[in-house]
Design a protein around this nucleic acid. Structure first.
Lengths: 194, 194, 194, 194
DNA sequence: GATGAATGAGTGTTCATTCAT
DNA sequence: AATGAATGAACACTCATTCAT
């Protein structure tokens, strides 16, 4: 009896997850407004009404997706490298880790970036992620300045330079290994002769 | 009579321009889907029907806006500096010029970026602008390598590093003079000690 | 075993009754259309599906409620006073008895009156109750005319006058003892001077 | 030009009125919830969307109908007879006038009575009409007491007795001239023998 | 008996577009 | 050129009902 119930609950939870994940993909392809509830239910292979059994509205479905794919902790980890490791090595790691996260979260991020201008909740999440990742990476760079590996400089600017560039190249589908290597090399040693 | 006609034509042209520009602002605020024809006509202070006198459809209105605010030539100019001027000076000029253009075209760019994922025509315009500006700036950098000011390196990567960063900081509303200066400084000399 | 069965049956019957009575209250508050099956099941503290175990449909639930709270016999009793008792005494009794019945059956009557215009079965029940109660009370009044207590007159009109007034004052929540007394007094002796 | 505009406006106003009046009839037949917007638009011979050009919502359409068919002034007039005319004559006038008004406003009143239990605004209108008409008629009766035509008594109760009865007989479709005559006769002289 | 997940027809409402004036 | 009434196809959402468990 309890087993039956918990099986049902588990199935319901699976269905919830399935609905969220298919919705996220449809949202990414067509946009939040462009994706109709019919699109969403057909993509999930269920009746339209079922969506409203699990979510109050289309907007609520988006909220649930943001919840489920919450990425701030991972982003924090990526931008908090061991302060004793050299920047030479770490900056490549960070940019690769960040790029990998972007790749894995592609649909979510596409949707968030698209909806941010009209959805304050989404905008705030993005702003927060940006603030925190820049601060953490900047802190790490500061420690490398203290360690004497890097010269004293505006470490926030450097953090932004790296993160912005990785994000933009991801968004424009022009992110590859050679580019990341070149970016890190440039950030460390510049392109001026000598 | 001819004067009357040309006056009318001029008035019609003015109205067209007014409709396009108010539409662009409304699109930027509410998104293309989010902006109703009623929103557009009210913002312009005209009846709904009038929009269809000047444009076939909402989509056509967007096309006209893209046409009117065509920015590729300006972007080309910005990213084609005099090859004899030193990078030290030019890179700051370019980033400032690019930033200024972004600032002036803010509503247009907001709309384009938002619609690109679902509108291939828009996506293609963005891709082209990116391709050309990267190529032009990269070419300039190549000439500075030849001139001996810069060391041999992946100049495309450098061009992208600069342009991506300026664009991202514009989009996130974190673009200011000190940041640009720091970015150019870093690109030229890196942040490594020594 | 038999006991178990009959216990079950009794429980089932209790559940049926519970469902009917909570439904009646919800119907009274929100109207038949306004009350959703979810409202009904939540009010009864059961799952939606269970309602369909006991009733074929929402409509059927209403039918069952009408059945269970069938009030015609009681109304007949109230409007069939002992023909030998004086009208002076009887009319107050009748109006009080009728008022008490209306009070006890408030939710049912609210629902019936509300649904009558679109539900012929309900309309017919009301019409029948009206017909019978008017006839019975009219017959009593006729007997009091014969007994010489009342003057010859349209006794149907008098019956309607009394019953309509009690019902309306019930519906408008303005039914109290002084009013009933005044009504009976007026019906018997009128308000003209002399 | 002005004529064109005002013609258009007049036509729009006519359309508004037509929509309200056909809607009122459909509401009366099917109830507010039971009447779909499709029903309403078909009854008016227009597209569904047009209803929303004139009214914000179905509920707003009801509000407009209540507004348009506002009957309180007429009811006040009916229940404010000349204080010098004898009750014998006046009470018949009042009941006939009230009955006529009910007949003319049948659909409106059907809808109002039906919606009152779930629509406070409607309930309040009914309550107010009741309060005012009872008070006005009661005041008249008071003046007839002072004039010596009627004996001192609860004039409010008498007013309610008359108005409630007329309304109820209207609602039950049992309102005819003989009944009104009998009611007035009874109210004035009662049914007790001598 | 009881649950609640699942269905799908239908609802009120929106909105780009057309058209008579 | 300009209006705004009118259309009708879509839309998000609701809800009575069914059904597997």
């Amino acid at each position: 009896m309890n087993e039956v119930r918990s099986t049902r609950r588990r199935q319901a939870e699976q269905r919830r997850v399935q609905l969220i994940d298919t919705a996220l993909n449809v949202f990414a392809q067509k946009g939040l407004d462009g994706a109709t509830v019919k699109d969403l239910s057909e993509a999930a292979g269920v009746a339209q009404g079922l969506l409203y059994h699990y979510f109050r509205s289309k907007e609520d479905l988006l909220r649930a997706a943001l919840e489920r794919h919450y990425f701030l902790p991972e982003l924090r980890r990526i931008t908090s490298p061991d302060r004793d490791r050299p920047a030479q090595e770490v900056l490549l790691d960070v940019s690769q880790g960040f790029a990998a996260m972007l790749r894995e979260r592609r649909p979510l991020l596409q949707v968030m970036i698209r909806e941010a201008p009209t959805n304050p909740a989404v905008a705030e999440r993005i702003a927060r992620a940006q603030r925190e990742s820049v601060r953490l990476l900047s802190d790490y760079l500061g420690s490398r300045v203290e360690a004497g590996e890097l010269r004293p400089h505006d470490t926030q600017a450097t953090a932004r330079l790296l993160l912005y560039t990785v994000l933009m190249s991801h968004l424009t589908d022009t992110l590859d290994q050679p580019f990341l290597t070149a970016v890190v090399e440039t950030i460390l040693h510049g392109v001026a002769a000598r």
